[in-house]
Simulated scan of single mutants.
Amino acid sequence: MKRDIEITTADGIARASIFRPKGSEGKVLPGVLYYMDALGPREATDIMGERLAAAGYIVLLPDLFYRFGSYGPFDGSSFGNETARAEIMKMIRETTQEMTKKDSEAFLNALEAEGVSGPVGAVGYCMGGGRALTAAATYADRIAAAASFHGGNLASEAPDSPHRLAGDIRARVYVGVAGVDGSFPPEQSARLAEALRSGGVDHIIENYIGMSHGWTVPDRGETYSEKGSERHWKRLLEFFSETLG
């Protein structure tokens, strides 16, 4: 069951969607903060939000690009369009990790307003993967589990690279890596693993051999893998069940 809401942040009003299991109004359920991929909220993310909610969670999917007002709409074919790709890349560059870090306090408060109590889970895809890890480090007392799937630049040379915050993470971490992914090459995977080990983080980094960046999302055309996506769902739901109950 989806309901659209607006969230007041320090920089404006963020559009967002809440997903709940049917018949769950008034029930106390664990919460999950869902960080979108680079194509923004759309039918495909709604499908994923609904499925996660059906497993027993209150899910919040915020629009990380809210500062740009109206944009798109985009779908899995948009990267093949030069104009759309340029718009997407501009929004990615100009929506910094620091912005999402700051926004995430309002996002977590929005989950609380829905009746979520106790630590929550975070999951991110593509650009959202790094946001989930950054949020887990920034709000260590509020996020108990953080997952990234085909997350890009999780351990880059950038000053705001999520791996630099590993020492602040108290959540369990799961990272699902595409077999071939230019945004997260093997050297970054090794760097992330070392940072998480050194930081004492309970973590798993799993390589999905044969999968491409974006394999989990159903509107990504030939990149999408039904088999690989179902494997991701199994891992994610087990991870949250073990950690959040």
Rank of each mutant, 00 (worst) to 15 (best):
T8S: 13
S117L: 05
Y125P: 00
P218C: 09
V180K: 13
I92W: 13
A166P: 03
T45Q: 12
F239Y: 11
G69M: 04
S225A: 00
F65N: 09
I58N: 07
G179V: 00
G151C: 04
Y66I: 01
W215G: 06
G115E: 14
G210T: 00
G151P: 00
F68S: 09
S117C: 02
G40L: 07
T96S: 15
G26Q: 09
V175S: 08
Y35S: 03
Y174L: 13
V28N: 13
E87S: 12
S198F: 06
L64V: 12
I169P: 01
A16R: 06
L111D: 10
Y208F: 15
K102L: 03
L154P: 07
Y174T: 05
V116C: 14
G23K: 12
G214C: 06
G151M: 03
A144N: 07
G40P: 12
E98N: 08
E230K: 14
D160Y: 01
I58H: 10
G182N: 11
G151H: 05
T216F: 15
A147V: 11
A135T: 07
G245H: 14
L237P: 10
T100I: 15
I18C: 04
A110D: 06
E194V: 00
V123Y: 10
Q97Y: 08
I47T: 14
G72L: 09
S148L: 06
E226K: 14
K102R: 15
D181G: 13
R172A: 15
F184H: 13
M36E: 15
N109P: 01
D46Q: 06
P62V: 01
D141Q: 14
G182D: 13
G167Q: 12
R191H: 05
G69Y: 07
L236Y: 11
A137F: 02
N81A: 02
Y125V: 08
F239C: 10
E43C: 01
S148H: 09
